[in-house]
Amino acid sequence: MIVLKSPREIEKMRDACKMVAEILLLLRERVKPGVTTAELDEFADSETRRRKAKPAFKGYCKYPSALCCSPNDVVVHGMPTKTPLKEGDIISLDFGVLYNEFYGDSALTIPVGTVPARINTLLKATEESLYAGIDKAVAGGRLGDVSHAVQAHVEAQGFSVVRDFVGHGIGRKLHEEPQVPNFGAAGTGVRLKPGMVLAIEPMVNEKSYEVEVLEDGWTTITRDGGFSAHFEHTVAITDKGPDILTRI
C-alpha cells in the first residue's frame, strides 16, 4: 500500500531531510586521501545524535553502521573500514536519519582527489540521471516515466543502470511502497499522486549492470570490477511539481 503524506507530514519530513543534506555536505568536505570511511561513519553518527536524531541505517536489518560507504567497484551497502581512501578513488556515501517520526534518505558519490576523465563522466551522468528522473516525478504521470528517464540518460552516456537494487517510497518507514526502479518503460507503473514521497536513487555502473553480494550479506560489488556511482534524493510529489526535500 502506498501511503500518501499530508502537507504537514511532508514538512516534518523536510526537517529530517534537511538534516541528512547538511550532514552529507559536512561529510563531503571531509573526503580526502588518507581519511578512512570508519572516521566518516563516526562523524555521521555523532553529528546525527548531536542533533537529537537517530541514524536510520544503524541496526536496520542488523546493518552495523550509520553510513553506507561504497568505494570504487562497490555499488551499495559498503561497510565502513579503517582502510584509508587514496587519490583516484571514488566513494559513495548513502545516509539517512529518523527525526520526529519520519525518515530522510540521500546519497552522493565523491571523487577522492583527481580521478580519470571517464570516472568523472560516470559521476556526472549518474547525478544528471537523478535529476532527469526527478523532472518526471509529477502528479498525473507514471512511475515508469521516472524509471525510463533515468535509464535513457545513463545508457545514452554509455553506462548501465543496476537492476538488482531500486529506489523506494519513504515516510514513517525507511522503505515503503512503491519500489522505484532505475529502468523501465515510460507510461507504465502506478499513477503518481500528490502526497507520494519517493527516494529516487540511480545506481550506475561503468560497465555491465551485473552485481554480486559478498559473504557479509551487505557489500554489493560490480561483477566485472568496473566503478559504480550512486546519487539519491528524497522527493515529494506535489500539485506544483517535484519537491526535493534533501536539497539544501
Score class of each variant (00 low, 15 high):
Ile2Gln: 10
Cys61His: 14
Ser6Tyr: 11
Arg8Ser: 15
Ala156Asn: 12
Arg163Tyr: 09
Leu122Trp: 00
Arg118Cys: 04
Leu24Gly: 02
Asp105Pro: 01
Val146Pro: 03
Glu11Ile: 11
Leu214Tyr: 11
Leu143Ala: 03
Lys54His: 13
Tyr131Arg: 05
Lys136Val: 01
Thr220Arg: 00
Ala229Thr: 04
Gly225Trp: 01
Pro7Met: 06
Asp216Tyr: 10
Cys69Leu: 06
Leu174Ser: 05
His77Ser: 05
Ala139Pro: 01
Ala186Gly: 14
Glu29Arg: 15
Gln179Gly: 14
Leu174Met: 13
Leu98Trp: 08
Gly189His: 09
Lys32Tyr: 14
Met203Gln: 08
Pro242Asn: 07
Ala66Arg: 08
Met79His: 11
Ala229His: 07
Val161Glu: 00
Tyr60Val: 12
Ile237Val: 13
Leu122Met: 02
Thr188Asn: 12
Ser106Ala: 15
Glu47Val: 05
Thr188Tyr: 10
Val35Leu: 11
Pro181His: 05
Val154Met: 02
Asp41His: 06
Gln151Arg: 06
Ala236Gly: 13
Val74Trp: 03
Leu85Cys: 10
Ile170Arg: 02
Lys240Leu: 12
Leu85Gln: 04
Met19Val: 05
Thr81His: 12
Leu67Asp: 00
Pro84Asn: 09
Glu22Val: 10
Arg247Trp: 15
Glu101Tyr: 10
Leu26Cys: 12
Gly169Cys: 05
Thr188Ile: 14
Lys32Met: 11
Gln151Asp: 01
Ala56Lys: 06
